[in-house]
């Protein structure tokens, strides 16, 4: 293990962490502020990826594809809230789970009917497919660096939106006491719809950034949903700051554990035992992390006040 390899893996971890954050940010707001168990958030990732890839194939321009896809993901979130989700706020959590699980199946099937079951392949334009030397002898794909920057920029943007703006104050007030906020003249219905649509767009952006890196296929968002549930539990449900720190933490632990743990086990185990235990342990690392954090901080790292 060299120090450059370790640094490169840190970059990989941060990159997967910020992608995870974009999914988790919307989910933590929906779960924490709107008190809604929404399982179909992975479908928003898939919609984002399909929208960007579809528009890119249609227009032949990657940037134009992204530009057209962002409003579409916002609109899909808006429409979903208006048609289905708004009826679920007053229902209990089990019914929300059932309804939103149904939405997962619905969206996967819809995509399969529209685009077919085969994976789509979205290529990067030549301007984004090069390498940058982040360290000597360590070329790193440009697009993955861009993903890190976009993720960080959006994280700062969400922080400012929630903590510093009038809109953010309304969001926080709506979380603390929705009835009182409504009595003071804030349109709580529109506020919820706005939060939901922003959450959907963020997940959509995560899908757009994943599309050129991985395959675009039905159900592609589901593994991310499970990871982002881990993230918001670690971070504290409803906390954007907590989601960010937890996402990067999960990204780093997962990446570094996955690569170095089997090698480390081989140092004091037989080859075959290490081959068996290493990958199994590596895939458990984030759940072990979650369990340990919950022992010391049962409400997560940064539970929202109030």
């Amino acid at each position: 293990m060299t120090i450059t390899l370790l640094l490169e893996q840190v970059f990989n971890g941060i990159q997967s962490g910020v992608t995870l954050f974009l999914v988790a940010a919307g989910l933590t707001l929906i779960l924490g502020i709107m008190d809604l168990v929404f399982l179909a958030h992975g479908a928003q990732v898939m919609i984002g990826a399909y929208a960007a890839t579809g528009f890119t194939l249609l227009t032949g321009n990657f940037y134009l594809g992204i530009f057209l896809a962002i409003p579409l993901t916002f609109a899909s979130g808006y429409l979903l809230e208006y048609l289905i989700i708004k009826h679920l706020y007053k229902r209990d959590h089990m019914e929300q789970v059932l309804a939103t699980f149904g939405l997962i199946l619905f969206f996967n099937e819809l995509i399969r009917i529209g685009f077919g079951p085969a994976a789509l392949f979205s290529n990067l334009p030549p301007s984004l497919s090069g390498f940058v030397y982040i360290l000597p002898e360590t070329p790193y794909p440009v697009f993955r660096l861009i993903v890190i920057f976009i993720g960080l920029a959006l994280a700062i943007g969400i922080y400012i939106l929630v903590a510093k703006t009038r809109m953010g104050a309304m969001v926080r007030a709506g979380a603390a006491n929705p009835d009182m906020t409504a009595a003071l003249g804030v349109n709580i219905h529109m506020l919820r719809r706005f939060i939901f649509s922003v959450g959907a767009s963020l997940a959509g952006v995560a899908g757009m950034m994943l599309a050129p890196l991985t395959v675009v296929e039905p159900g592609m968002g589901e593994p991310l949903l499970i990871l982002s549930l881990v993230v918001i539990i670690i971070g504290g449900i409803g906390s954007v700051r907590g989601a960010f720190i937890a996402a990067v933490l999960v990204g780093l632990v997962d990446t570094i554990g996955r690569v170095f743990l089997p090698d480390m086990l081989r140092a004091f185990m037989s080859q075959s035992a290490a081959d068996g235990a290493g990958p199994a342990l590596a895939s458990m690392m984030i759940y072990i992390l979650m369990a340990v954090i919950l022992v010391f901080k049962p409400t997560g790292l940064f539970p929202p006040k109030g």
Binding site: T4, L5, Q15, L210, T214, V259
Partner: peptide, 19 residues
């Protein structure tokens, strides 16, 4: 190296492979 069944991002494995 044994990866996860259904894994979609192999960047970390590729970094290790490169070195």
């Amino acid at each position: 190296v044994y990866t996860k069944l259904g894994q979609s991002d192999f960047q970390a494995e590729l970094s290790a492979l490169r070195s």
